[in-house]
Design a protein around this nucleic acid. Structure first.
Length: 819
DNA sequence: GAACAGATGGTTTTT
DNA sequence: CCATCTGTTC
């Protein structure tokens, strides 16, 4: 339709993107239709731009039909962004071309072709959404499409059908087998946890394409036999309801691709583009390769884009080797030559931040063996650099002081638009070396010339500023290993203290994952009130000896809070107040009715109780919590005998139906099995400071990024080591190894479990550091940098995020300006 | 209410 | 492994 040169010109004119200025990008976009590509795209290298322009180039220059293109990515959020970018840019170019063709009245055929382009026909989405869509389009006439169930439904089904039935959870062999994947204990007795364990094993079997029959036939271990039974029962239950879960969906799609119905479809596709390919697992690779076979026959190509350094989804069966070895695997299985392109120019971050990221990625020698071979460092293409602020360190003696100083810094910056701090010292590699040798604190300043600034005459200052017109808390992100505000024993963690400090300074914080739903006050009262009504003296609770103690504790707490709440005599008091309502329920004494009903749905009781709890009806966050609870009540009712209904017609039935509610609704809530749908929070005002886990920050960027590298580490404790310096691989890696033995085409991972654990940690902090555009602040306790003293010995806390390597050498960073 | 034994649980993340 | 909670005993 148009030449590539014209396409390039239009992109400059209409989209203000100069492709030709970046040779890596233009090679990727310009490539011929039959040239498959392996694009290694470092952070901030504009990979979405490349993907979108590559698609548009094939449409406008090569005349490829949009319906013969598939583009997938890893998360729904990223998929939405990709789709809207394609539509936005695609229609901008189309409109421009139409106007131009009309003006000059060049070629009526061309005009017709351009006018007919419908970008909505490009199949974009996650692999699962694409699978669902294609299964739907290509289904046999008259077949019923299965419903895909969400994780919490799967968990409830596995708990009920797989673990609770036949009292499997009481079997010691099963408890021990699941316990083998736990770091600290030998047996797991909690039925919900056992169900999670079985689901994890099963999911890994799917994702590593294990032959189930073969694996199941060779079992002798009693625990494994029970797992097999649980999996079979679970799958039969789903089948009988025409439901599938996510792993089954991908397997189904792979199988369907072999059927005749799909043949016509495969004969017509010409391009598949996969983003975030480093997070692909074997099952997904098989799907992509099967699609690619058809595509290559049609003269098209498969292009994968990703960054091995940002692979964070091992828990989903992702294997970074599939990415690093993609050219080799494609040659062997598809018989094609794939061209490797490195997008190394970074348009996101300042020079200092890029230097830090490069340095960080190269600190650890062993890590280099896990990366794409000969990977070039990230480059900084800009010439003019007015703001090149050094990496800043904010370290204090206690969490209180740290949160106070950090929150004053943030609030001054947001409220005044600018903030200035004196540089106390500069920690450089020389001082790192001395610290590593265990030098006395007071000796350091003498030996390392840069170390102590406080006595110098020319004091140094660092000044930060936010964009005057557009600056907002949104420009700042606080990244942490865990966004939790409370620990397992409900004690406040640093995130909580920080949030309180910020709120005191009028900075609102957004941290939906900070609290589990069972820690929300109104939820505790709500659940406590329901329990008070249905099981007044806890008789049923006490009788059921298998309820985990931790759940009993939480439920007792809820009841106490509920009783306190009843004593407050909340509104409404007419026609009946809360106290008498609960009383009537406890005595099963009808109110406004002739006799007590034969049965009541739990939802009906729940809706009545809500009338006394304002926050669950009025504020947005309350409504989200309420919705999560109601969902649990209705959805889990699906898989059990009484269906979230209490029967009063005979005492045994009443007891059993209430006991079932404990298992299906209240124990999961108490054990934290309930997840809140974060999309529902989107109605919240967006001028809040984000506290998020590093995972959540993937794909995002912020002008100012604060990374928590050690707010919780006072000592070198084993319990925190997996967050900073693992001493062993852990259960996930053990499971990975065991499942891989049975995998159809993947070997047992070559790297040791411990090495993989280190690799993952390095990748995580690489992602964290590379989110920053202008300023990166590392925060933590002083003990993380200067060590802690115990029995007058100077001790260090090894920490990957602060520049240790896996040989326990403290290499550190080039320079950190301590404020 | 102190001192102690025994139990308990421990991160992240997606479709 | 270890911090923390619960329950018991003096």
């Amino acid at each position: 339709m148009i030449s590539y040169e014209e396409f390039e010109r239009i992109v400059v004119d209409i989209l203000q993107r100069d492709i030709s200025s970046n040779s890596d990008q233009s090679t990727a976009i310009e490539a011929d239709l039959n040239q498959s590509l392996f694009i290694v795209a470092g952070p901030g290298s504009g990979k979405t731009t490349v993907i979108v322009l590559k698609i548009l180039k094939y449409i406008f220059v090569d005349g490829i039909e949009p319906e013969s293109i598939i583009a997938t990515t890893f998360t729904r959020k990223a998929a939405n962004e990709l789709t809207s970018r394609i539509l936005d840019w695609g229609y901008k170019i189309k409109d421009y071309l139409l106007a131009k063709l009309l003006d000059y009245n060049i070629d009526i055929d061309d005009l017709r072709k351009v006018a007919h382009i419908d970008f909505n026909l490009i199949l974009t989405g996650t692999i699962d959404s694409v699978a669902t869509e294609l299964i739907k389009i290509n289904r046999e006439a008259g077949t019923n499409l299965p419903t895909v169930i969400e994780n919490y439904v799967a968990k409830s089904a596995m708990t009920n059908i797989g673990v609770y039935s036949n009292d499997r959870y009481l079997n010691e062999n099963l408890q021990e087998y699941i316990g083998e994947f736990s770091e600290f204990t030998d047996t797991i007795k909690n039925p919900t946890k056992i169900a999670e364990g079985i689901l994890a094993i099963r999911e890994k079997m799917y994702y590593n394409v294990v032959d189930f029959d073969e694996a199941f036939n060779n079992i002798s271990d009693a625990g494994q036999l029970l797992i097999k039974d649980a999996i079979i029962d679970y799958e039969n239950e789903l089948k009988s309801r025409n439901s599938i879960d996510f792993p089954m969906l991908e397997k189904l799609f792979l199988d369907k691709l072999d059927t005749d119905k799909f043949k016509t479809y495969l004969d017509n596709i010409k391009l598949i583009l996969v983003d975030e390919y480093q997070d692909t697992n074997l099952l997904q690779e098989k799907i992509y390769f099967k699609l690619a076979k058809g595509i290559i026959k049609n003269g098209g190509n498969i292009t994968v884009v990703g960054d091995d350094d940002q692979s964070l989804y091992r828990f989903r069966g992702a294997t970074v080797d599939l990415f690093t070895n993609f050219p080799k695997r494609a040659r062997e299985q598809l018989g094609i030559d794939v061209k490797e392109i490195n997008l190394k120019d970074n348009y996101r971050s300042s020079k200092n931040i890029i230097n830090l990221c490069n340095h960080f990625a190269s600190l650890d020698d062993e890590y280099q063996n896990a990366r794409v071979s000969h990977k070039p460092p990230i480059k900084y293409p800009k010439i003019n650099d007015d703001k090149n602020i050094p990496i800043i360190g904010l370290f204090r003696n206690s969490q209180d002081i740290l949160s106070r100083d950090l929150s004053t810094l943030i609030s001054e910056l947001i409220i005044n638009g600018t903030v200035k701090r004196e540089v106390k010292s500069i920690v450089d590699s020389q001082s790192f070396e001395l610290i590593n040798k265990g030098e006395d604190h007071s000796n350091l300043s003498k030996k390392s010339k840069l170390f102590d600034m406080s006595k110098k005459k020319n004091k140094k200052y660092i000044e930060l500023s936010l964009d005057k017109d557009n600056g907002s808390p949104n420009d700042i992100a606080f990244l942490t290993y865990s966004p939790r505000e409370l620990n397992s024993s409900h004690k406040n963690k640093f995130n909580y203290i920080l949030r309180k400090n910020l709120e005191r300074r009028k900075i609102e914080v957004f941290n939906p994952r900070g609290k589990e739903i069972q820690d929300i006050d109104s939820v505790k009262i709500f659940c406590g009130l329901i329990l008070e009504c249905i099981d007044p003296d806890m008789n049923i609770l006490k009788e059921d000896k298998s309820i985990p103690l931790s759940a009993i504790r939480s439920m007792k707490k809820w009841r106490e809070e509920a009783k306190k709440f009843i004593d407050k005599n909340p509104e409404p008091r007419e026609p009946i107040n809360l106290k008498s309502f609960v009383n009537h329920w406890q005595l099963r004494k009808p109110f406004n009715l002739d006799k007590w009903p034969k049965y009541t749905r739990l939802m009906d009781l729940a809706y009545k109780i809500i009338t006394w709890i304002d926050s669950l009806q009025d504020d947005i966050e309350g409504l989200v919590y309420l919705q999560a609870i109601c969902q649990t009540i209705t959805q889990t009712g699906f898989f059990n005998e009484y269906g979230s209904t209490i029967y009063f017609d005979n005492p045994t039935k009443e007891k059993k139906s209430i006991d079932e509610l404990y298992w299906n609704v209240f124990i999961p809530i108490a054990n934290g099995g309930l997840k809140i749908d974060e999309d529902l929070f989107e109605t919240l005002p967006n001028d809040r400071l984000n506290i998020m886990s590093i995972h959540q920050s993937k794909g995002l960027e912020f002008p100012l990024v604060i990374v928590d590298v050690g707010s919780e580490y006072k000592k070198d404790l084993q319990s925190t080591s997996f967050q900073r310096y693992p001493y062993k691989g852990g259960g996930d890696f053990e499971l990975e190894d065991r499942i891989r033995k049975h995998s159809s085409s993947l070997d047992i991972p070559k790297r040791e479990q411990l090495d993989r654990s280190f690799d993952d940690l390095i990748r995580r902090y690489f992602v964290a550091f590379s989110r920053a555009q202008d300023v990166l602040i590392l925060v933590g306790l002083n003990s993380c940098i200067y060590g802690y003293s115990s029995n007058s010995k100077h001790k260090n806390i090894p920490n990957i995020a602060l520049g240790w390597n896996r040989n326990k050498e403290f290499i550190g960073f080039d320079e950190i300006y301590m404020i």
